[in-house]
Write a protein that binds this DNA or RNA. Sequence first.
DNA 1: GAATGCGAAGGCAGG
DNA 2: CTTCGCATTC
Length: 649
Amino acid sequence: MDVSPILDGLNDAQREAVTAASQNMLVLAGAGSGKTRVLVHRIASLVEHEGVSPYAILAVTFTNKAAGEMRTRVEQLLDMPAGQLWIGTFHGLAHRLLRTHWRDADLPQGFQILDSEDQLRMLKRVMRALDLDDDKWPPKPLQWFINARKDEGKRPQSFGQVRDPVLQTQLKVWTAYEAACQRAGVVDFAELLLRTFELFRDRPDILDHYRRRFSHVLVDEFQDTNAIQYDWIRLLAGGGAGVFIVGDDDQSIYGWRGARVGNILRLGKDFPDLQTVRLEQNYRSTGMILGAANALIEHNSERLGKNLWTDIGEGEPVRVFTAFNEREEASFVIDRIREWSAQGGARRECAILYRSNAQSRVFEEALMAAAMPYRVYGGLRFFERLEIKDALAYLRLTENRHDDPSFERVVNLPTRGIGAKTIEDLRAAARERDISLWQASSRLRDERRLTARASAALEAFHDLVERLAAEVTGLPLHEQVDAVIRGSGLIAHYEKEKGERGEARIENLEELVSAARGYDVEPGSDMEPLASFLAHAALEAGEAQGSAWEDCVQLMTLHSAKGLEFPLVFLCGLEDGLFPHQRSLLAAATPRETPGGMKLGQRVAHARFGEGVVLNFEGAGEHARVEVNFHDGGTKWLVIAYAKLEPLR
DNA sequence: GAATGCGAAGGCAGG
DNA sequence: CTTCGCATTC
């Protein structure tokens, strides 16, 4: 038998996948069946056994965590650093390509990345400029619309002549938003992927270069790919590279952001010699848990079919506890964890899972009251904090003066006498002349179109940014950050904020300096440290709490728990409308309103039936009816005119 | 015109 | 808990 550690300890199916000679492989890997293991060992086997250069391997994952883990494990297995190997998220790799080909992709060299908050601000600004009433056109759905279309690989031009007035407006906003981004030299997350895709599509020479370079393309969590990501892979691997696709048709959790399980089904058409291997042995869960999971999965549509089994044993049955309210739920969970610890179990082996981060609050309070240490994953992450984003905005301006979102964020922070009126004038001028806010403020000042006060304040701001930029040139990264948070006046500004809030903000700013000190430029990148750090901040928002590894109960969303293992797991808040989430129940994805002014998913109260959720409606005028799912009494159709439903928040 | 303080409203998941 | 829109004060 083979003594290579690369094949050691793999079961038959895993070994078949790892060593398959077939160029194109699809590995259908059930939960807990050793998916990451197979990917890592496949890479190691290509390098070690088949003499493939790491330089010719591209591995794509969805989360930074998965990418990091994969790189670490490959390096352990090969016992050498694998800097040449391209492992990363779709967004990370796209970013890397655009940094190399910025000119070909029609971007400025110092282009920066907008996170979703930046994107929303930018969108609001554009909508104000178009004079759109934001009651009638809520910005969030528009943001969602734009991102969803971009994830489908579309541009506003793809729609041609449009008659639908709603779509017309959406496209108008989108077009203006794209122009504003291009002017400011910023790209949102979806743009990273779309630009790279278009680069490949429109520049055969560049595509050809990468096709020749990458002889092997590996993709993790393939069931979560959306249309643009699929096309990306298809283009890159279309030149004859071998694809190694790992996915689970039963585990798609990102349908809401355009992921298409159908992509797995499509693979067979685009890669005709595709060979399929199923990993069905689960190493994580007991028979009882698998039985429950299989019973649910059976109802999925579009399955390729898989039967998970385990030899761990039956284990204890899955228990369901119905709590009166969330406080009782929390105290039940805490009691069980107490019992677990009393029997010698560790607290870190207990996971409390919920659907949305907001649900952690009740548990945090209860855990705190019970003096039980815990750790929350997710939530507001480090690089998303208010004060951190302020500091990053200054840093971004030292790199790229035309970064309008950053300009708006800090032009009057700390307050220096530049108010809404002045900013509105700047926006108007920038729009008219198709220039950035930074340029607009110089022009308006030169033309003496501003009040003396605004003019002086803007000059002070310009001088400040120019001075900071000059000052930090050539300094080590963390000193650059330190100089900017102090020189900008942000530290002084937050010192004035009363109480613990201000202190916490200062601590976070200091923490940003530490983060910069510990930051290493991505291997193989020739970017300036600051530019690289700023991209890193946008692409990887960081953990909310990185604190000491005490023996803590683990709290996280289901999404962040994917791929992890815990002996004792609590699934909390399995409530109608919350889990599964309203959105996934009402997949009809365009929010409509009933004639009575109620929305689908709206919570309502009825005098006799109690509280419920609006599922559907039909008819118009006095005959209009709504279908309501009452919390205790099933669903009923009610005529709006008679039912006297009271809308709840 | 800008800064500050207040009340009201909305809140999902990751890059 | 936060961000926002608005009224009041500087």
